Computed example of a mutant assay.
Amino acid sequence: MNKRLSSMAGRIMRAAVAAVCTVACVLSVSACGADDEAGKIRIGIKFDQPGLGFKKSGTYVGFDVDVAKYIAKSLGYSEDEIIWKEAPSKQREAMLQNGDVDMILASYSITDDRKRVVSFAGPYFVAGQDLLVRKGETGINGPQDLNGKRLCSVTGSTSAVTVKEKFASKVQLMEQPGYAECATALLSGIVDAVTTDDIILAGLASASRGRLRVVGKPFTVERYGVGIKKGDTKLASQINNAITEMIQDGSWKRAIDDNTKGVAYTPNAKYNPPTPTEGEKK
């Protein structure tokens, strides 16, 4: 009897020790994760948009990335103190609300619906929905030429919604998970044009090495903002000051030029460079 009790007590003790070790390991990993982010700034960007936010061989490049780096530096963070996090369109509001990131620069259009749950600084750029076509295409010079054409955009994007609202009776719309897939469909002749914001199209055209071009007839206005936590007017003011400085010292234009090399692309001068006033106390 004593031997059985002794054996049972040993098993209970070993199980208890294992449970304590498991908890300790979990807490240790969590603590390490928190330590890794301590004293750093977490910025959400796109990882799959050439020219804006693109993950390339472990580094991050694009106009959104350049603006984010400038803002971070203005806030006192060096480049190695930035933690880049992928911010897919459908997850942006949740990432800010949950505190997963401190700010988001991811072709994030400022809209009234979004402002109900998050705040914005900026805008730092004003884009317009446009068309991307093959270099030799002469039959599409603007949205008026879309009748009977095959068009590609990304599922769930505001661009796809606009096409359905404005051109549903005129075009055949193919929806893809990303703009790279749309560009591939365009190059292979499956579709006649790709549509989204002009600066995104400029990035795709640049990546195509001259095989694609932006039509240059934008038909919407998209104000790109820096998404931040709801109500943080102090941070909004600091970000707006950084954007203004970036525009004034020429860094903003250099970033545009660097990320649209080889493409005949010029931001709409009617709206750019913009005046960043979003999110501040009135």
Rank of each mutant, 00 (worst) to 15 (best):
T138L: 04
V226D: 00
R254K: 10
T196D: 14
I200T: 14
D198A: 10
S208E: 11
L187F: 04
R42L: 05
L27P: 02
G39H: 06
A94Q: 15
R42S: 12
R116I: 00
L52M: 11
Q49Y: 07
L132K: 12
N2S: 13
A87V: 05
K164E: 15
M103N: 03
V171M: 00
S30N: 13
N268C: 05
D198W: 04
G51E: 14
M8Q: 14
Q176A: 13
V226I: 08
R223T: 03
K56A: 11
I83P: 04
I104T: 01
D36K: 15
M95P: 05
G189K: 12
M174H: 08
A269V: 08
E93K: 06
V67Q: 01
A106T: 01
F54Y: 14
A183C: 05
P273R: 15
L201D: 04
S89V: 03
G51P: 10
V133A: 03
S237F: 03
K281F: 08
M95Q: 15
R114T: 01
D36I: 02
F63D: 03
V20Y: 01
R114Y: 05
P143V: 06
A193D: 04
K281A: 13
K230G: 05
V126I: 15
R209Y: 09
D80M: 07
A202R: 14
R14V: 01
G225L: 00
A68I: 03
G231W: 14
P267T: 11
G44M: 03
L151V: 12
M95F: 02
A183Y: 08
G148T: 11
S251N: 09
Q91W: 08
A127G: 09
G139F: 11
